[in-house]
Design a protein around this nucleic acid. Structure first.
Lengths: 140, 140
DNA sequence: ATAACATATGAACATATATTCATATGTTGG
DNA sequence: CCAACATATGAATATATGTTCATATGTTAT
């Protein structure tokens, strides 16, 4: 037997050969379930879509930002209001609002000296609600 | 006029006085819309609930973990399979799987030398789908 | 125009997080 | 038991992120 630099295939799946190198016995990888891997790979969205998705959820992945969005479910609020609600400094809140604005999760309405923030669309509440359901179900 | 250390209330809302200090003209804070703030505060869930929620979304807020979950939509997969799909090292994948396991987003099934991972419940797909809808709608 | 206010933002700092490397644990076949 | 394999994990490192401080920008009232 030759091919000393390759490994013996331990899991081949239905096709009984490596889909990468078309080899029936040896391959660069071991322990690969080729069919399952191929299926998963084919159904996977573009990498930049998944990157955007991660960026979106990252916005929900911070307690301060979650609290901001949660507060905005009720009314539109200005930066001072949010700072008061969260018990945090104006600057910290403003920085987080900038992130939420950049991610198109909140929108601003200027009125005199104040900036009033509100949620951009209903998807945000849906995502939030879905997450909350999961949490509450987990606690049972 | 006394109360030099307090600020004049610039926004009082319907109640026309500060709900905190019951003062009609001066308060420790400025630019607070008292009614809106009170409403938001009263509807806000417990802080630890929002913390858990942030922890949950944090799991979705990383491209590697999103890709792992996405791959597991199709079939259960072992660590090697996931490493192959993601084009990453076994250790990196294993570390992320540990996080997902701790957060109860994936479960493991041991079979011989391999560990097969799968999604814990349908909430995960719902959250993922809701996020994806938001992304795609945004791109229009 | 100037002062007071509301917000935004750059820089600095501390903390959190993801990946890699090395190694430990656990399983199977000879 | 031993070797090969699959996975898990601790430590180290690099990077990302959140908050604070100081300050800039923009608005309103006098």
């Amino acid at each position: 037997m030759s091919k000393p630099e390759k490994f013996k295939i331990t899991h081949k799946g239905e096709s009984e050969e490596c889909i990468e190198c078309q080899d029936k016995e040896f391959c660069d990888e071991v322990c690969i379930h080729f069919d399952a891997v191929a299926k998963a790979k084919s159904k996977m969205p573009e990498l930049d879509t998944l990157f955007s998705l991660a960026e979106l959820f990252k916005m929900f992945g911070d307690t301060t930002r979650i609290r901001i969005m949660c507060a905005l479910f009720e009314n539109e609020l200005c930066v001072c209001d949010l700072a008061e609600i969260l018990g945090m400094g104006q600057s910290a809140v403003s920085h987080q609002l900038r992130l939420l604005r950049t991610a198109n999760l909140v929108k601003v309405r200027r009125e005199g000296k104040s900036s009033f923030y509100s949620l951009d669309d209903e998807h945000i509440q849906k995502i939030y609600t879905m997450g909350l359901e999961h949490i509450l179900e987990e606690r049972k």
